[in-house]
Design a protein around this nucleic acid. Structure first.
Length: 471
RNA sequence: GGCCCGUUCGUCUAUCGGUUAGGACACCAGGUUUUCAACCUGGGAAGAGGGGUUCGACUCCCCUACGGGCUGCCA
């Protein structure tokens, strides 16, 4: 390379552990990485941190991929399995050894435990200090060993974090962490650094539970003479009570949000806005988010989940979504929620009614509830509230209205005129006649406008439903 | 225990030494309205506490309280 580009290509990554579902906090971390990379023409990589063979499962990995896909976060290339790279990790550990940046430690787990117990009793630091750190290799026994980082014992390590600012750790707080276990497998600390370096990651955006780890990790970078990436440690998401978000707060897995019927665009908007801001912008598109997203806009305090705001944003996104895209997303929701799918007639009806449905729903279940007039079929059994609206007097009025509609031209203006005429003839307002009409057309009391419903289902169906209700 | 991070309306946040501390969601009142959603008008609502620094602190420093993280041959 002869020259340094003024703006080196950005490479970010999301590196979850496949030990369960995709946590909502993890999803936000992924979103931040995705926004940062995509907004700069960079790459967004995915790596599955499956070095813990006890807890990692293929099902969990599948859930993560599925969750990211639903959220619309596409990654570049294949997802990398960290476990699959264990040989390379071991190779780096051996090179650290050769460079004198690491050493073999033959202390047993029992010895370490004893050391800690004694240290604790004497109120000293419990960070393990291995007696093998400076041992002459000639004295090495023929026994199992781990490879430890030979970390500096004095001075300090500074993390220049893009969110937290400069964070300084005294090196006496950082121990000689294990990089390669006695069975030859790498620890997380070694694996992340090696993988991030090999994958060319330039920006590490992750939860601030890794902030302290970063200090130990940079020592590996230094030991290998590698460039340290830009770090951005973002605060975790808390539950409504301010405590770390856990299952007792309700939904923590991303798939639960899909099953509850939130549109992905609304989730992206809400999650992006949680802990990050761009002035007073609240409702924005993906394109705007990509353009605006920056590390400097990320806050340092943990944020709490607010379902009301999530719903509000989702309602706005549903309202502006393309009908066809909404249709597809709703059907995906039905499947995710384990609900029956739509038949051909229902699909057609939903497509035709979408224009008046999407502006009055915050979630898909709510939209579907209001779509009952195109999802159901004759005869429409009125629910309790609708039955109440269809009293004797109201049915009498509807009976009069029916022939009027039979002769009406099927336009909004004509329908409004006919209904108004009938109402006027009885000396009542539109409100009094719309209620029963709505109940007859949908069997429900919460629906789109009665005129929209008549326009959507057509003249014959309207007349038939009115006849059913007044029979 | 040690080290590290955090703390502005109920919630998400703006502010980057000088503002009547702004916006959004939520809430309350009123209006509009064929239900719902939406919309319009108005309202209440905040710098954790205590010390400094400064002509002047939400903004800078220190202490305390509270919350969180790390302190593993977990990630």
């Amino acid at each position: 390379m002869t020259s340094t580009p003024s703006t080196p290509p950005v490479v970010t990554r999301f590196a979850p552990s496949p030990t369960g579902y995709l946590h909502i906090g993890g999803a936000r971390t992924a979103l931040f990485n995705w926004l940062y990379a995509r907004g700069r023409g960079g790459k967004f990589l995915l790596r599955i941190e499956d070095t813990d063979r006890e807890r990692s499962t293929p099902e969990a990995t599948a859930a993560i991929l599925k969750g990211l896909t639903w959220l619309g976060l596409d990654w570049d290339g294949e997802a990398v399995s960290q476990f699959g790279r264990k040989d390379r990790h071991a190779e780096v550990a051996r090179e650290m050894l050769a460079r004198g940046a690491a050493y073999k430690c033959f202390s047993t787990q029992d010895e370490i435990a004893a050391f800690r117990a004694e240290a604790e009793a004497e109120k000293r630091s419990t960070l393990f200090q291995s007696p093998w750190r400076d041992a002459d290799p000639a004295t090495h026994p023929d026994a199992p060993f781990v490879i430890r980082l030979k970390a500096p014992r004095t001075g300090s390590t500074v993390i220049a974090d893009s969110v937290q600012g400069d964070v300084t750790f005294g090196n006496d707080q950082l121990d000689d962490m294990v990089m390669l276990r006695s069975d030859g497998t790498p620890t997380y600390m070694l694996a992340v650094v090696v993988d991030d370096h090999d994958m060319g990651v330039t920006h590490v955006i992750r939860g601030d539970d890794h902030l302290t780890n970063a200090a130990r990790q940079v020592q590996i970078y230094h030991g290998m003479g590698w460039d340290v990436p830009v770090f951005a440690h973002i605060p975790l998401i808390h539950g409504p009570d301010g405590k770390k978000l856990s299952k007792r707060h309700g939904a923590v897995g991303l798939e639960e949000y899909q099953a509850m019927g939130y549109p992905a665009a609304g989730m992206r908007n809400y999650l992006a806005r949680l802990g990050w801001s761009h002035g007073d912008s609240e409702f924005f598109s993906d394109a705007e988010a990509r353009e605006w997203f920056d590390l400097s806009g990320i806050g340092r305090a943990p944020a709490r989940l607010d379902f009301k705001k999530l719903e509000n944003l989702c309602g706005q996104h549903i309202a502006v979504a393309e009908d066809a895209a909404l249709q597809a997303e709703i059907e995906a929701y039905l499947e995710a929620a384990g609900l029956p799918g739509l038949d051909a007639a229902q699909r057609t009806g939903l497509v035709r009614a979408m224009y008046c449905l999407k502006e009055r729903a915050k979630t898909f279940p709510e939209l579907l509830e209001k779509a009952h007039f195109v999802l159901g079929s004759r005869p429409f059994e009125p629910d309790a509230a609708a039955a109440k609206a269809l009293d004797t007097v109201s049915r009498g009025i509807l009976t009069e209205l029916t022939p009027q509609l039979q002769n009406a031209s099927w336009t909004r203006e004509a329908l409004e005129a006919k209904v108004a005429e009938t109402a006027a003839a009885h000396g009542i307002g539109l409100g009094k006649i719309a209620g029963p009409l709505r109940a007859a057309l949908a069997g429900r009391t919460v629906t789109p406008s009665v005129f929209d419903m008549m326009l959507v289902i057509g003249q014959d169906e309207t007349v038939a439903r009115l006849s059913d209700a007044t029979r």
